[in-house]
Design a protein around this nucleic acid. Structure first.
Length: 865
RNA sequence: GGGCGUUUAGCUCAGCGGGAGAGCACUCGGUUUACACCCGAGCGGUCACUGGUUCGAUCCCAGUAACGCCCACCA
């Protein structure tokens, strides 16, 4: 398919582009030739980025496809511009997700539960699962064309990365930035593990607000709660110290219903007297606020649920799930006449596990935390002082809001798959953190928990480069040039890379620019989700339309920071564009276009014009790439290729190919396509590579040079000529169309007022035949450019259609005339507006008046009906 | 409860102080030797609403409405 030698036949392309024929072989060739392998010793300026590591459990979705298309475009262009490019691929180990999948895998394959395995056995099985089912996305990335450096692929649980995790933990621990404490944390009863704050999603949903009378007679007080079941763990009722209603009760004990316990009424500033009854039940072990109150008042903190949120408090409710217990307890209270009020539904926010959607249970437990205050300050400052730039900068506010209000990060997870916390306990209960090269004393046992997956992800920009060792990769590629990721992951990942990158790398930022893209939504703008059933598999689209079409359609919608809708029609449109390019190149090959030899000194009008335009496009695309405006890059190149190169340049070139300047045009045609394919290659690498190697016989676009603008090729005169041709031809075509003339039919006609540089093209593109001996024009068109065309339409023209056309044009011109005349009559305008603006208005008025005169003359000249 | 964003052609979105744009959809016409995954022509918008600033507002400011997102330990 793709010629590698100049003597290979070059014009044997089929009339339609078939992506499946070229994509696989091209990708394999690129990888075999090591085009994507970075070389820190190359002497070229480095350009580096790391892939946001997808979960080892994941497969490619449209969000990945968008993100990776952006990164691939960035890296391919950088490579063409002469950089030593590192785009580092890899995956993260997805602690909780893999734990769950392996549990299911073991249930299915061996019929056993996790409890029937030792920790070591389970981890072995997890690796086995990873080998068999993990990493599907890597093959899918090849399909998409990602030019990643496979020789540097990393996994967050690799030996090297694990060592990095261990090392930084030890360092943070020694700096007192990691500590262990008993706190109320977010607990998922299904995954039976602690979660960090951001792994909890709050959703407004209907619940119930039940008001319960505690105590009896004078010593009674009503509390309201959405969580009646926690009353079993109540150890106080709190009121505001200044609340006059309850002064007499402060310090008094009231009977806790359904139990035989008595609990004190205490005064605490935290209570809002205006909410409900102004009295609050206090369950220190099951609510974060109550925990704080409990600490202040030294209250007992009984735990009444186990790790699966099943009631453990002795009594009739023991063994019930928390939600069953809620119903049962409310019923029992009602029976005792203690329910004062019930509001149902009661709308309130409930936290859910971001992993499995189970309602999160606040749980009192001993966990490990990162003390974030100093780290967060540094992370905020790095953006504040411009060392890290966010694109779009409108995301700055969101970043600061988060990083400036960060709370300590709970990093321990009660799981087996992951990095085990490197802290050991002596038989006497002492604890110590040992580094990767240290051996704990015999008899000591290691902490059971593993670290939050995001802990290792936070190290990704430097752990993947060999840190903590002083490697050539680390020296060359850190800080990375740019990070591309979704704004939805700013807090999860970007902020944490900032925390740890600045800490581990002595204040050096992990990346200089962060490009944030939006979410890919369905055609109706709805978020894709399994429950909605609107998830689209990009692989299916790649099969149907090719990888380039999927990439281009995503990039066409990629405005920085904004969500985008996708739709199969747009993929089809992108496929059509690839086919258009294919055929344009086919035409060039069939026409003998060449890339050899110097460009003609002074080409014909169209040749000079298109080179001039090419120049402007290069400059524009370069500018847009610096701003990561992918949608605009795609739009610019799409319209240049289709509207200018195909619709005008190629059509004009056809006129000169067989003439005296044919060789010059063949050279320019080759140059235009050569350059266009280079410019498009980062976005649509496959079709451009196939075409470019056929056209030029070159080795590969992957290692070809990025085009440069040549100011000396700007040619205003040629540009003006082509603009005239375009305007006159378009107007002439409109006239023909209005007159119902078959587009293919040649009509005898005479052109005046155009000049020798433009008249032949106008005649050809308007399909004007030679005016023969008996030439008798039946219609005359004077265009806005002052060029007049006399047509012999062989019969009467449609006067009604022509009158309608002119009337419409007249209305436009008249409005233009009156608007601009009005402005000029306004002294406030002429006095205050900048002279350039006023001059422009004068010009427009003059043009409108000329246009009116022309139209009126044309109307006058029309035969009466 | 705080904060942010969006509202422009039927749909998805650009534009953001001086002439309303694109893709798709739609209408009409086409066997124009690169391409029907095509070519040519066309239709389509009080730029959410109200007020303000300005010589001039889709664009700036204020307010309103609708939708969306993020953050949040008031039971």
């Amino acid at each position: 398919m793709t010629a590698q030698h100049p003597d290979t036949p070059r014009a044997d392309l089929p009339t339609q582009y078939r992506p499946a024929d070229v994509e696989g072989p091209l990708y394999e060739r690129w990888v075999e030739r090591n085009y994507f392998t970075a070389d820190p010793g190359s002497g070229k300026p480095p350009f580096s980025l790391v892939i946001p590591p997808p979960n080892v459990t994941g497969s490619l979705h449209l969000g990945h496809a968008l993100e990776q298309s952006m990164m691939d475009s960035i890296t391919r262009r950088a490579r063409m511009r002469g950089h030593d490019v590192l785009w580092l691929p890899g995956m993260d180990h997805a602690s909780i997700a893999v734990n769950n999948l392996v549990e299911r895998y073991l249930a299915e394959t061996e019929g056993k539960s996790r409890a029937e395995y030792t920790r070591e056995e389970f981890i072995d099985k997890a690796w086995e699962w990873k080998r068999r089912y993990g990493g599907q996305i890597l093959g899918q990335m090849r399909r998409l064309g990602d030019g990643v450096d496979w020789t540097r692929e990393r996994f967050t649980m690799d030996d090297g990365l694990s060592r990095a995790v261990h090392t930084i933990f030890k360092r943070l621990y020694d700096d007192d930035l990691i500590y262990r404490a008993e706190r109320i944390i977010n607990w998922c009863p299904r995954d039976t593990t602690a979660l960090s704050d951001i792994e909890v999603e709050h959703e407004e949903e209907p619940g119930e607000l039940v008001s319960i009378r505690y105590g009896d007679g004078d010593n009674s007080i009503v509390v309201a709660t959405t969580r009646a079941e926690t009353m079993l763990g109540d150890t106080a009722v709190a009121v505001h110290p200044d609340d006059e209603r309850y002064q007499h009760l402060i310090g008094v004990e009231v009977a806790l219903p359904l139990t035989n316990r008595r609990i004190p009424v205490i005064a605490d500033e935290h209570v809002d007297p205006s909410f409900g009854t102004g009295a609050v039940k206090v369950t220190p072990a099951h609510d974060p606020n109550d925990f704080e109150i409990g600490r202040r008042h030294d209250l007992p903190m009984p735990t009444i649920m186990d790790e699966r949120a099943v009631i453990t408090a002795p009594g009739p409710f023991q063994g019930l799930d928390r939600l069953e217990a809620r119903t049962a307890i409310v019923a029992a209270l009602r029976e005792e006449g203690r329910i004062v009020a019930e509001k149902r539904p009661y709308q309130h926010a409930v936290g859910h596990c971001s992993r499995c959607d189970t309602i999160v249970e606040p749980r009192l437990s001993l966990q490990w935390f990162v003390r974030v205050e100093s780290l967060a300050k540094a992370a905020g400052d790095a953006v504040r002082d411009g060392r890290v730039r966010l694109v779009p900068s409108s995301m700055d506010g969101r970043y600061f809001q988060w990083v400036d209000n960060l709370r300590d990060w709970c990093i321990s997870r009660q799981q087996w798959w992951g990095h085990r916390i490197p802290v050991w306990y002596s038989p006497d209960g002492d604890d110590a953190c040992f580094g990767p090269d240290e051996t704990p004393p015999p008899g000591w046992t290691q902490d059971d928990d593993v670290l939050d997956t995001w802990f290792s992800s936070a190290l990704w920009p430097f752990s993947t480069l060999g840190w903590p060792d002083d490697t050539a990769d680390l020296r060359t590629y850190y800080p990375t040039t740019v990070l591309v990721t979704g704004y939805d992951i700013l807090f999860f990942w970007v902020v944490r890379m900032m925390l740890f990158g600045l800490y581990a790398m002595d204040g050096e930022v992990p990346f200089q620019t962060v490009v944030l893209h939006g979410l890919v939504r369905d055609a109706a703008g709805k978020k894709m989700s399994k429950s909605r059933g609107n998830v689209i598999d990009p692989l299916l689209w790649m099969d149907e339309y090719g990888a380039d079409a999927v990439r281009l359609s995503l990039l066409q919608g990629a405005n920085p920071g904004a969500d985008q809708a996708v739709n199969e029609e747009w993929v089809k449109g992108a496929r059509n564009f690839c086919n258009k390019l294919w055929n344009a190149t086919r035409f060039a090959l069939l026409s003998g276009a060449t890339v050899d030899g110097p460009l003609p000194e002074a080409g014909t009008g169209p040749d000079a014009w298109i080179l001039s335009r090419l120049n402007a496009i290069i400059a524009e695309v370069d500018d847009l790439y610096e701003r990561y405006e992918f949608a605009k890059i795609a739009d610019t190149l799409y319209h240049f290729a289709w509207d200018e190169v195909c619709d005008w340049y190629i059509e004009l070139a056809k006129l000169s190919l067989s003439g005296p300047s044919g060789d010059a045009t063949r050279r320019v045609l080759g140059e235009v396509l050569d350059t266009l394919l280079r410019l498009l290659h980062p976005m649509i690498p496959f079709v451009t590579e196939a075409l470019w190697t056929s056209l030029t016989g070159g080795e590969s676009l992957v290692v070809a040079d990025w085009p440069e603008a040549h100011a000396e090729r700007d040619d205003p005169a040629a540009t003006a000529d082509i603009a005239l041709i375009q305007d006159v031809v378009t107007e002439g075509r409109r006239f023909r169309s209005d007159q119902g003339v078959n587009p293919a039919r040649s009509v005898p006609g005479a052109v005046s007022g155009a000049g020798p540089a433009t008249e032949p093209a106008i005649r050809a593109l308007l399909r004007l035949g030679e005016p023969g001996d008996g030439f008798a024009p039946t219609a005359e068109l004077t265009t806005a450019r002052g060029v007049t065309i006399a047509f012999d339409l062989s019969g009467t023209i449609d006067v009604g259609a022509e009158r309608a056309r002119l009337a419409k044009a007249r209305a436009v011109a008249e409005k233009e005339q009156s608007v601009n005349a009005g402005k000029l009559a306004n002294e406030a305008f002429t006095g205050k507006a900048p002279e350039a603006v006023v001059a422009k208005v004068r010009d427009r008025l003059a043009a409108a008046e000329a246009e009116l005169a022309r139209i009126d003359a044309a109307l006058e000249a029309l035969p009466s009906e």
